[in-house]
Simulated assay, not measured.
Amino acid sequence: MVKILKFLAYVLFFILALMYFMPKKNVYYLVEKELQTNNIVISHEKVIDTGLSLKLTNLDVSMESIESAHIGSVDISLFGLYNTVEVKNIKLTTVASSILPVKINDVNIKYSILNPLNVTLNAVGGFGSVRGYANILDRNITLILKPSKTMKQKYRTTLYGLRKKSNGEYEYVQNF
């Protein structure tokens, strides 16, 4: 029993040390470079390595040379078995205001080894709340929107593109 506990302690220490000393900033810059090949540019960000996670603040996101959003903060935690990305205070530019409310409060993306085929997503904003998942095996994403009053009143054309369920929620399914 003591040998098993000792072995588990060594494995846990090795994993934590690997995460702590992993060059998280370099991985982020590699991902940023890969996004640029798809015409998505992230600029003006401040990158902070906090040991076990990576924190980004004040990001400006442009797609196809059009400024699209300002993001207050992103906290990325990669633990291997349980990974999270938390995005807070997203403000879309006026280009998107014709199809969505421009304020998104929180977006949480999680991946766990306990559910290895799905990446889950939860978001809250002026549009209401969204929960969903991306199935890696089937290569599709499913989003369930519980719309706010603003979304129902001002953005009906966006809701027409979604399938309405019997409980008043809207579903969006797309292959990727």
Rank of each mutant, 00 (worst) to 15 (best):
K3P: 10
I4Y: 13
K6L: 15
F7G: 06
F7R: 15
L8N: 10
L8I: 13
A9S: 15
A9H: 09
A9I: 12
Y10S: 12
Y10E: 09
V11G: 09
F13A: 15
F14Y: 11
Y20P: 07
F21E: 07
V27T: 12
L30M: 14
K33E: 15
Q36G: 11
N38E: 12
V41L: 14
V41P: 07
S43D: 14
H44S: 14
T57G: 03
S62C: 06
S62V: 03
S68A: 12
G72C: 00
S73Q: 12
V74D: 08
V74Q: 06
D75A: 08
I76E: 00
L78C: 09
G80H: 05
Y82M: 08
T84D: 05
E86V: 14
V87A: 01
K88C: 00
N89H: 11
K91L: 09
L92W: 01
T93H: 04
T94Y: 11
S98H: 09
P101W: 04
V102E: 10
V102H: 02
V107G: 02
N108K: 13
N108A: 07
N108Y: 05
I109S: 01
Y111Q: 00
Y111D: 02
N115D: 14
V119P: 00
V119G: 04
L121H: 05
L121C: 01
A123F: 01
V124Y: 04
V124Q: 06
F127A: 05
G128M: 04
G128Y: 06
S129I: 01
D138R: 09
D138A: 07
R139W: 06
L143V: 02
I144A: 05
K146A: 07
K146W: 02
M151N: 07
Q153R: 14
K154G: 03
Y155C: 00
R156S: 15
G161M: 13
K165E: 15
S166Y: 13
N167C: 08
E169W: 09
E171R: 13
V173T: 15
